[in-house]
Amino acid sequence: MIGLVAYLVFFLIVALIFAVAVLGLNLQWGFTGLFNAGVAGFLAIGAYTMAILTGPSREAVLGGYELPFAVGLLGAMLASGFAALVIGLITLRLRDEFLAVATFGIAVTIQLVCVNWEYVTGGTLGLISIPNPSRALADGPFAQNLIYLALVAVLAGLVFVGLERIVGAPWGRVLKAVREDETAAASLGKNPVRVRLEAFVLGCMLMGLSGALYVGFIGYVSPFDFLPIVTFQIWTMLIVGGSANNRGAILGALIVWAVWTGSGFVISKLVPPSVQAQSGAMQAVLIGLILVVTLLFRPRGLIGEKIAVSRHARD
């Protein structure tokens, strides 16, 4: 029983860290229609910033400032926000699939920079011993993880409430207007390029926050953590949960991560030991099957976008 609870706490930490990134992507894709295929790159920027700011000093590698955890989180968000600003200024004139290709390329570039820029990232060896703040507050992995879960849950909750407020505000309506018809939005005196840039930067800052929380939890970062499959996972979470709905984004993160990891558990229970080594393929099939079935029956995601009609229209 204790084991199950301990595992669930661990599971929820990782799932909620993903949820923060999914919320960021939801702002970009769900509300603004920006196809960001470079999620892993912005996670990486946040993660490495966190590692450099809060990690212990080491020879021949930048960093070791041993700054507090909160400073690391803020720094990570600022760094990924700044990177998003620069990248956004260059690429946001591109639409849809062109933006997707550009951001995908950028994410791969960022990953390669992580591999090669040893002075900053430690190269392929990665950066070790990043402090986890919960280790100082309690003894034993269970209590420590509970504390970290509380921290991640509070942050994810703040992000959720904040996003709900801004997408419900006039700014949020402009986002949707830009998503639905840029020309119409511009004709009403809105500046679509500026709005797209704002949404892009804000969304990427959340991805940076997610990367930083991941590193703070695991205590280690390497380029291996940011392969393109991570972008695919975050996207799947958003699509399954329901884009343009922040509740859907969080639900998607929890469900997709549960399917992704739970399928391994189910297979290790059901498959006889003699053929377990071949079970990897079965797990991949199972994951794919569940996702396809979800999309067939709920094409707009588990919780789709709420139809918003102006309250004045009712009269």
Binding site: V14, V230, T261, G264, F265, I267, A284
Partner: peptide, 14 residues
């Protein structure tokens, strides 16, 4: 036996 799929997050969870 549990599969890592070659991914750190999946491996850690497993």
């Amino acid at each position: 036996l549990r599969d890592t799929q070659g991914q750190p997050t999946v491996g850690v969870d497993a």
